[in-house]
């Protein structure tokens, strides 16, 4: 009798937990509060593909999760604590279950794997277009800096030994000997025009870091010694947080900057003001 109760308790518990787990996923908030648990509004041209993929996977994974927990609960309710009952085998036995798993999960995996690569491809397989605005991002313990080429359209070279934060030479530029470096514009904030493709060239000063803007649906590591880049187009004016997502040392939690998306006019004015 006691054993039987245990099975019933488990059955109820596992189903209640499964249903409760789904509540914040469905409501996008934390149990009746106003704490939002959904990804923030997407402000990129490629992000909707990521969101679509996330939603589809959530539906498939969520239903699989609920179904499995429900079946577990029902079977334990039914057979838990049963004594000397006639043993039965699941209709069809192992064969049908194996075939079902192969077909269902296999098809799901192939579908998600093959069709879900569109957003990945748009970020990583297509190069940035030729007229994209080039910005260089540098990550170092524990700050981001951004650099624009200035009127000449050329970036000066980086000389790690010349980095001097006291004199705001964050990138290690050598304007004395390096002409393109003289008009380079350095900023602690990533200021970009709206609806214009940005080609972000990434440079790590010391250790590994990562560039993550939730709203942009962009995340990319800075890897020391590697010239990496990403490209994206922001579609909405506003200020968004850029945070570091690769463990980089004691100040990791505090390593952040802002992404400031402006109208083209405002951006032009800002750039002009910086170069004076």
């Amino acid at each position: 009798m006691r054993g039987n109760m245990g099975g019933k308790i488990f059955a109820v518990l596992v189903i209640v937990i499964a249903l409760a787990s789904a509540v914040p996923i469905v409501t996008h908030t934390w149990f009746g509060s106003n704490i939002s648990l959904a990804p923030p509004e997407d402000i990129s041209t490629h992000g909707s593909e990521i969101d679509k993929q996330l939603d589809e996977t959530m539906l498939e994974a969520g239903l699989s999760f609920l179904a499995a927990q429900l079946v577990l609960g029902v079977f334990v309710w039914q057979f838990g604590g049963r004594k000397d009952g006639v043993l039965k085998n699941f209709p069809g036995g192992a064969k049908y279950l194996v075939v079902a798993a192969l077909l269902l999960v296999g098809a799901e995996a192939v579908a998600l794997g093959a069709l879900g690569t569109k957003a990945w491809g748009s970020v990583y397989f297509q190069p940035a277009s030729a007229d994209a605005l080039q910005v260089q991002a540098q990550a170092g313990q524990f700050a981001f800096y951004f650099r624009y080429a200035g009127p000449d359209g050329k970036f000066g070279g980086i000389h790690p030994e010349k980095i001097d934060e006291g004199n705001s030479n964050f990138f290690g530029l050598d304007p004395e000997n390096d002409i393109p470096a003289r008009d380079d514009i350095t900023s602690g904030e990533l200021v970009i025009p709206v609806n214009k493709e940005i080609h972000l060239m990434m440079h790590a000063k010391d250790v590994g870091h990562s560039f993550y803007v939730r709203e942009l649906r962009i995340q990319q590591d800075f890897v020391p010694g590697l010239d990496l880049s990403v490209h994206f187009t922001a579609t909405k004016v506003g200020k968004y947080e850029i945070v570091c997502t690769q463990l980089c040392g004691l100040g990791h939690y505090n390593m952040k900057a802002y992404l400031n998306v402006m109208s083209q006019d405002d951006f032009d004015k800002w750039l002009k003001a910086q170069s004076q």
């Binding site: 054993g3 838990g80 004594k83 009952g85 043993l87 192969l102």
Partner: peptide, 21 residues
């Protein structure tokens, strides 16, 4: 796929058992 097969086998085996709790 193998992970799902294992889960289904565990679940399917519970059916019709004299499960001791």
């Amino acid at each position: 796929i193998p992970a799902t097969i294992m889960t289904l086998i565990w679940l399917g085996s519970l059916y019709g058992s004299n499960l001791r709790i």
